[in-house]
Amino acid sequence: MSGLIPLTVRELKKWYRNPIFFITGLLQPFFWIALFGSAFDITKFLPNASGSLILQGAPNYITYIVGGVLTTSSLFTAMFAGTNIIFDRRLGPMGRFLSSPIRRSSIVFSKIISSTIRILPQALILIVAALLIPNGLKFIHGFTILDVLVILAAITLVSFIFSSIFSVIAIRMTNMNSIFGIVNLVNLPLLFVSYAMFSPVMMATWLSNVAKYNPVSWSAEAMRMVIINGSLTGSQWYQVGTWLGALAVLALGLLLLTAYLSEKEIRD
């Protein structure tokens, strides 16, 4: 009687049945990888950049940036998870949910889970697109099933984290503009105060110091590590483990917070 499954199915139906919502979501990765891949490609100013500290050993900028774009794509999709809570409140379905014997938190978790699921095909398309474009993604040191799992874990965790944060924000909100305002306020800072696009050596010291604590950096760096290096050494695994562990701890904390707040605070 938790209601989580029917509510999540509902969200996903609303997604794949809306052609604009569905297709734009699938096109977005192409734009991102193509645009970010060339707009921020600093290597053209720096000959011999490849293999250096700047690209942390990646053969080209696209290969370097794929982990960052995957993270950013997840982040930007996840930030809108909360809007559907406000829509449900304004359009009426929330009243139905609240008078049913389902768990209140299911209403919120259905948004978080569906938003996380929506990101996965985007991620797949993004990787394919990166492989297809000229001078694109190259796995020079091979690519194993473990690497796939790392990428999957990082995307899922980062989506879950930001979907939760923005859903919790929306729990008591009634005005759509408030959530859009918050999204606009934090999206670019979250992206640029992170290692998603640039390596620490390219950043101002203070920026790099702050970026260290941004979950966007953890996810981008973890994916980057496996994409660039293929099979990792022990210390590299330790590093990836630390990043994913930090993401997992944060996700767990947010899971508990979301469960607590949505049971207690959600209103019509």
Binding site: M1, I5, P6, K13, L91, P93, R96, F97, S100
Partner: peptide, 19 residues
Amino acid sequence: TADEDLTGRENLTMVSQFY
């Protein structure tokens, strides 16, 4: 309270699953 993006039957089925 019905979800406009679902059919009438889907709305009914979803609520039946709540119970």
